[in-house]
Nucleic acid binder design. Structure first.
Lengths: 253, 253
DNA sequence: GAATTAAAGTGTAAAATTAACACTTAGGCC
DNA sequence: GGCCTAAGTGTTAATTTTACACTTTAATTC
C-alpha cells in the first residue's frame, strides 16, 4: 500500500460538501455496520480507537451519487454497491470536537471549513465482498450495530438515522435479498427481520406471509452438519423480488 | 418594500450549500405548490416567466433546518412552518442553464460556484398564512401541482421528488391536519387524499376507515349555502392525530 | 444405540379487515 | 314543484390477521 498523502489529493474537491456511507451487513445473527479505523486513539482513559463512517469531500465534477460510490471505493475497496441517499447533516459544529478537528488537520487542505454531509446507506452481503482499506482508512471493519465503538463527528447520529430508515423501509418493502447469502433458510430470513425490526416474529405466520409473496424459490438442498433437523435452502427470484419492491406492500406481524 | 441589494447581503453565506422549500397547499380541490417569481422572462417565444422554489444559500452559523426556516421566511414571509428534509440534489450542472446563470449573476457574490441544495417540504393551510414576497422574490404564488410553469434550476425534479415523498408518506401516516382548514367536511378530506394519491376512493369505505381512527371530532355545525345536502364539519383531535402519526398505520383503498 | 437437544416444519379456527356495491336525504336553483 | 348535487348510510363475501402446540430430523452425549 502506498503511503497516504492527503493534502496533495485535495485538488478538485469541494471544501464544503462531503458524503458518508452507512453500509449494513448481516452475519446470520446480528446487523453490522462497516466502519473505518481512522487510526487515532482517544487520549482519555481507555485508549479507545476512534472509528468513522467511510466518507469524504465530493469532487467538483461529480454528482452526489457518484461521490458516494467513489468515496466508498477509495476507502474500503467496495465496488458496484447500490447506495441510497437518506439524509443530509449540517450542524455548524459537527466537526468541531477536539479529536475530530485534530484529525481533519492531518487530512484536509481546509480543515476548518464548514462541511455539510450527504448520507447514503446500503445493504450488502458481507461475505460476498472483500474489504481493502486504503486512503486515510487504516482498516475497514464490520461492527455490531448494537455495540458501536466511539465514533467521530456526528456519525453516531447518522448511523441511528440510517437504521431508522432501514427499519422503516423494511416494513413496506421486502428486504433480505441484499443482505443474505445466495442460498439461505427461512430461519435466517426471519432472524434478519427480527434483527432489523428488533422484535420477535411468529414462525408460522412469518413463513406463510413471506412465502405467499412468491419471490422465494425452494431448493432441493438442505443444511448439513447442523445438530437439529436441517432446514431447506431458498433463493430469491430476483425478478419477482424486484417487482414486489415496486408494488405496494406492508409488512405486519 | 426596500429594493433588493443582493450581493451585499452575501456575507456569512456558504457559497456551496443552499436549501430549497417545497410548500404544499390544498384549495379544497387540487394540490398546490408555492413558487416565487424571480422576475425573469424567457427570451424564447412565449415570453413566459420563470418561477422557482423559495431557496437560497445557507449561513455559516446556522444548521440546515434553521436555514430552511429562515430562507422561507425571507422570501415568502411564512413563519413557524414545520419543514421536513427529504433529499439533497447536487448535480454539477444543476445551475448551468443559460437563464439560470444569468439570474445568479444578479443575486450571488459567487455566481459560478457549485451549489448542492438540501430540499425540504411542508404542508400548510394556504388560507391560514399571508404571503409576503421579499428579497429576490418578486412575488410568491400558489400554483397547481398538475400544471406548473417553467421552473429554474432542477426545481421540477425537486418538486417531483417531494410529491413522491408526499404520496408515499400519506400511505402510512395520516395527512390532512396540516393542509385542511380548522373545520372541514369528510368530502374535503377525501378529495385531499384523492389529490395526493391521484386515485379515486370509495366514499363509504373511506369514511369508515378514517372515522375508525378516531382523531376526527364531529361538530354540530354544518355547511350552509351549498346547493345540496349540507355536510357536517369535523375537526382534528390534535393529540390523537399526533399519536396516530407515530403509530404503525397503512392506508389502503 | 438410546436419550437428549435444537431448530425445522406444519394447520386451524376465530377475529378483523377489506372490497364491492346503491339508494335515500337535504338543500339550493330554476 | 321538479331538478340537480353531494351527503350520508349497511351488508355481505372474501381475504387477511392473529394466536397457538406438536411432530420431525439430525447431531451430540453418555
Amino acid at each position: 500500500m502506498t503511503p497516504f498523502t492527503p493534502k496533495l489529493t485535495e485538488a478538485g474537491l469541494n471544501p464544503n460538501v462531503s458524503v458518508d456511507c452507512v453500509i449494513f451487513g448481516f452475519d446470520g445473527e446480528r446487523l453490522k455496520v462497516l466502519l473505518i479505523d481512522r487510526d487515532q486513539v482517544i487520549s482519555a482513559k481507555g485508549d479507545e480507537k476512534i472509528y468513522a463512517l467511510p466518507g469524504n469531500l465530493i469532487k467538483e465534477d461529480e454528482n452526489l451519487d457518484e461521490a458516494a460510490e467513489r468515496v466508498l471505493f477509495e476507502l474500503t475497496g467496495l465496488e458496484d454497491i447500490f447506495l441510497e441517499q437518506f439524509g443530509s447533516f449540517g450542524d455548524p459544529k459537527r466537526l468541531t470536537k477536539e479529536h475530530d478537528s485534530q484529525w481533519l488537520k492531518q487530512i484536509r487542505a481546509h480543515p476548518e471549513a464548514r462541511v455539510i454531509t450527504v448520507a447514503y446507506y446500503s445493504l450488502i452481503r458481507a461475505d460476498q465482498y472483500e474489504l481493502h482499506a486504503s486512503g486515510f482508512a487504516k482498516d475497514a471493519i464490520w461492527h455490531d450495530i448494537e455495540e458501536l465503538p466511539p465514533l467521530g463527528f456526528d456519525h453516531s447520529e447518522i448511523i441511528e438515522s440510517a437504521l431508522k430508515e432501514l427499519k422503516f423501509k423494511s416494513k413496506y418493502q421486502p428486504i433480505g435479498f441484499e443482505l443474505l447469502p445466495e442460498k439461505f433458510t427461512l430461519g435466517q430470513l426471519q432472524k434478519l427481520y427480527e434483527a432489523i425490526l428488533n422484535i420477535e416474529l411468529d414462525k408460522r405466520n412469518f413463513r406463510r406471509k413471506i412465502l405467499k409473496m412468491s419471490f422465494l424459490t425452494p431448493l432441493k438442498e438442505k443444511q448439513i452438519g447442523v445438530p437439529h433437523k436441517p432446514a431447506r435452502y431458498y433463493t430469491f427470484d430476483r425478478d419477482k423480488y424486484q417487482s414486489y419492491k415496486s408494488q405496494d406492500f406492508y409488512f405486519t406481524l
